[in-house]
Design a binder for these strands. Sequence first.
DNA 1: CTGAAAGCGCTAACAC
DNA 2: GTGTTAGCGCTTTCAG
Lengths: 343, 343
Amino acid sequence: MASDDLENASRPLTLRDVSEASGVSEMTVSRVLRNRGDVSAATREKVLEAARALGYVPNKIAGALASQRVNLVAVIVPSLQNLVFPEVLAGISEVLDQTHFQPVYGVTNYKPEREEKVLYEMLSWRPSGVIIAGLEHSDASRAMLKSAGIPIVEIMDTDGEPIDSVVGISHRRAGREMAQAIVKQGYRKIGFLGTKMPLDHRARKRFEGFTQALAKEGIEIHDREFYEGGSALLKGREMTETILKRSPDLEFLYYSNDMIAAGGLLYCLDNDIDVPGRVGLAGFNGVELLEGLPVKLATMDACRAEIGREAARIIARRASGEEGGGEKVVLTPTIDLGATLKR
Amino acid sequence: MASDDLENASRPLTLRDVSEASGVSEMTVSRVLRNRGDVSAATREKVLEAARALGYVPNKIAGALASQRVNLVAVIVPSLQNLVFPEVLAGISEVLDQTHFQPVYGVTNYKPEREEKVLYEMLSWRPSGVIIAGLEHSDASRAMLKSAGIPIVEIMDTDGEPIDSVVGISHRRAGREMAQAIVKQGYRKIGFLGTKMPLDHRARKRFEGFTQALAKEGIEIHDREFYEGGSALLKGREMTETILKRSPDLEFLYYSNDMIAAGGLLYCLDNDIDVPGRVGLAGFNGVELLEGLPVKLATMDACRAEIGREAARIIARRASGEEGGGEKVVLTPTIDLGATLKR
DNA sequence: CTGAAAGCGCTAACAC
DNA sequence: GTGTTAGCGCTTTCAG
C-alpha cells in the first residue's frame, strides 16, 4: 500500500507494472489496452482490472515512436480572441471527435515568424495532418508544410495557391458581392472601415474585391478609416464618428468585420442618425452577437463552422490512408441584408 | 537531387540523415541542434548547414522518450467561445513564450466526462504540468491529476479544495460584494439572471454569495430567470423583457455575465427604461466589449489575463525543478460601478 | 571537443 | 490466444 503510493509518486507507471500486477505478458497487456487482436475474456479482465487499480496511463510517446503513428492533428489559427476562429475549431472538433484523431491548437497572433515557430514545434511531434488558416505563409513555413509528407488543409480563404488542399470562401468575391448589393440599393458615396491590413490578408482581399466591383460601376471609395488593436466595438464607434465628421456626405459604410460594424451601428443609433436611410451599414462574418443588436445588421456569413468540419473531414480521410490530395472546397457565403442595407 | 526529393517525400528525415550529409556523428549533430555541450564552431556550422539544406525537423517523440522530458504544458478550459478563456490563454502564452515550455490546449465543453477524456489524452503525452479550469472534477480526473507526478494548477476559482496549486478569485466573495454595492445604493427589489447553473460552478458560487449577502441585509431575491445556449446578447434581451414584464417592480438586475447584461442594457435603452434610475444593472467579467456600449455597464473584473500569467509562472517554476507545491493565489477583482449602478 | 554503446516504453512481426 | 525479439529516433552516459 504505502510502497505503492511511493512508487506512484516517484515514477510513472509502465506497461511492465501492469504486466507484473496482472501476471500477463507486456505484449498481451498492450493488446488489451488498445483493443487489438484476440485476447481471451479472462485475461482481458485481469489486465483491465490491474490497469485500473494502478491508475495506469499509457505513454503515448513510446507508443507513437514504436508504431510510427500519431493521432494528433495540428490546427493553426491567428487568434482565439476573434470569435471566428473558436467557431472554426468547434467545427473541427465536431468531426474529429468521431474519429480517433485529436486536434491540437496553435496560435500565431497574425505573425508569420510566430507561425513558423508554432508550425515547427508542432511538426516536430509528427502529427497526422495540419489544418492552417490562410494561404499566405513564409517561405520556410511553406517548405516545412510541403515536405512534411502529411495532408495539409489551408482554411478560410481560397484566393491563392494552396500547398495541398484548401477549404474556405473567396474573400475577393465576398467583397465584390457586397459592393454590388450596396450599389444596387442606390448608395453611391461609400466608405470603408477596417483593420490595418498588412496583418489580415482576408480583410485585404475583401477590400480589393470591394473596390474592384465598385470601380466597375464607375465608383471610387469615398473615404476610408483603419484601426489597430483595442476593443473592436469601441473602435467601430470612434471610427464611425471620425469618418462621418470628415465626410458628412457618406451614404454607406462597409466594415471589415461585424464587431466594428456593431460599434458603428450603436454610434448611429445613439446620435439619431437614420439607418439605413441617412447612412447604410454592412459588416462581415455573421457573428452570433449580431442577433442581440437593436437593428439587424447587414452581413455576410463566412461559413466558419462548415469550413472547420470540411477541413477535418478531409484530414480524417487522408490521414486514415485514403488516397487524395489537392482537394479544393469553395463555400459560398450568403449575404444577409438585415435592416441596414436597403433603402 | 531527384533522389533527395524522393526520399524526402517517402520518409521523414532523421538525425542520421543529417549526420551522413555533414560527415559528423549523430551524437554531435544532436548536440549542435540542441545547443548542448561544447562543439567547435567549424563542425557546428557544417551541421547547421546540412540540417537547413535538408529541411530537417527533429523528432520530438524520440527525443522525449530518450530524455524523459517534454516541454508541453496541458491547459484545459471549458470553452473557447466564451471570450473569458481565450483571455486566460493569452496570459498563459505571454509567460510561457519566455520559457522553453509550450502550452497545449484542450476543451471540455463544460462536460466532466469530456474533461476526463481530454485529461487522459493529454496526460498520456506526459506533459510537464497541467493548468485546468475549476476545482470541480470527476473522481477519476482528480485521481489522474493527483498521481500524475507533475505540477497542477487549478485556475479561475478559489472556493474549494485544490489538488495542488490554485490561482483565481473567490466567486462567492465576488457575488457578495456586488450584492453589498447594490444594497448600498438603495436598491431593494433585486432580480438575478444567469445560465442554468449545474454546468457552471463559478456562476453558481457567485449566485450563492450574492443571495447570502442579501440575506444578511434581510433581502430575498425578488425574481430570477435562467437560460441555456444561444446568443448571449439576445438571451439577455429576451430574459430582461420576460423578467421585467413578470415583475415590473424590480429595481435591479444582476446578470451572471457581461454579455447577457449588455443585452439587457440594450433592451432597456430601446424601450426607454431609465437606467439606472428606474432599474439598475450589473454584469460580471469586465469584458472588453463593454467599452463600446452606449452606457458603461457595472461589472467586476475577473482578472483573467493575470490568472493565466500567474498560473503559467507557477508551472514554469515548478516544472523547471524548483521545489514547491500547494501555492494558493487569490486575486481580488475590482468592482466597476459604471453608469448603471448608482442612483 | 567528439564518438560508441545502451536504452527510454512501447508495438510490429513473427513464433509458439 | 499468447509470448519473444527487435527496434522506432533520439539522448544519456561514459570513454577517448
